[in-house]
């Protein structure tokens, strides 16, 4: 097996077109701009850009709809609550405020969705490590992400077991919250902690942390267009503070 230092020109990782760090900075910039926009029409235009980004990234509309329909419904609730609950403000302003708030929320969530749809957590972690993040912390992120499917299964099993026993862990009441905490979080926590010592010993047995640097099997490249995207993102975010 061939490995490469993080700053070498080893083989490229899969279909990485834009460096995950560039995408992350672009996402942060997009969120800043979304928060700065104060005209519903501009926010609507921004939403169009984000959706266009989904099309460019070839996110299937059916998947986009399935993942974001709850968010769309919540946005509508926000919009309706501004119109119906806010008093002493003229009708037009209520509509404008409600639309702006809903669009702001939608823009941030959909921009994040675009980032998540086009970026793997592993690629982000490797890109950060190759950019200088101490690999032990990058490893913590990787470990966290790798445990997610396991704990999801475990949490689901525990929840189903408690529901089957008649424990009311799925009701929106204070009692259910306490029962949920007691009968779901404790078992999941104990299960998760039971993995800690064996994994830590196993890793140290393989000399994890012995050297200050590590090698990689694949390289997450940083091209000139990544710098261009980062520069543009930062410039737009800064400009939003002066122009809007």
């Amino acid at each position: 097996m061939t490995t490469f230092p993080g700053d070498s020109s080893g083989p490229l990782a899969g279909e990485v077109r834009l460096n995950p760090i560039a995408k992350l900075i672009l996402l942060v910039s997009a969120c800043i701009v979304a928060l700065r926009l104060e005209e519903p029409l501009y926010a609507l235009g921004f939403l169009g850009l984000v959706i266009f980004g989904h099309l460019l990234a070839r996110v299937k509309p059916a998947i986009l709809w399935r993942r974001t329909r709850g968010i769309l419904i919540f946005s509508l609730i926000l919009f309706a609550s501004q119109i119906l609950l806010v008093k002493n403000v003229v009708w037009e302003m209520r509509v404008a405020n409600g639309a702006l708030m809903s669009l702001r929320f939608l823009n941030i969530v959909l921009a994040s969705h675009l980032f998540v749809s086009t970026t793997g957590a592993e690629n982000l972690a490797y890109a950060l490590m190759q950019a200088g993040l101490p690999y032990r912390y990058g490893f913590a992120l990787l470990t966290t992400m790798r445990f997610v499917p396991y704990f999801r299964l475990e949490a689901n099993t525990v929840l189903q077991a408690q529901v089957a026993r008649g424990v009311e862990v799925d009701r929106p009441t204070p009692k259910a919250i306490w029962l949920m905490a007691k009968h779901t979080i404790i078992p999941v926590t104990v299960t998760s902690l039971s993995k800690v010592d064996s994994l830590a010993i196993s890793m140290e047995g393989r000399c994890f942390g012995l050297h200050p640097d590590r090698t990689y099997r694949q390289r997450i490249p940083f091209y000139w267009w990544d710098w261009a995207v980062i520069g543009t993102g930062i410039a737009v975010a800064v400009a939003s503070f002066h122009l809007i």
Binding site: R136, Y137, F139, A140, L141, T143, T144, M145, F147, V148, F151, R152, A155, L159, D170, P172, A176, I177, M180, T184, I185, V188, T189, S192, L193, K195, V196, D197, L199, A200, M203, E204, F208, G209
Partner: peptide
């Protein structure tokens, strides 16, 4: 290393259960 693993598994468990907490 043990601390990092511990933090990682606690965060993973928290992230998973947060979805359910948010739903509630």
């Amino acid at each position: 290393t043990r601390d990092l693993v511990l933090i990682a598994v606690v965060s993973a468990a928290g992230g998973v259960l947060s979805t359910y907490v948010g739903y509630l």
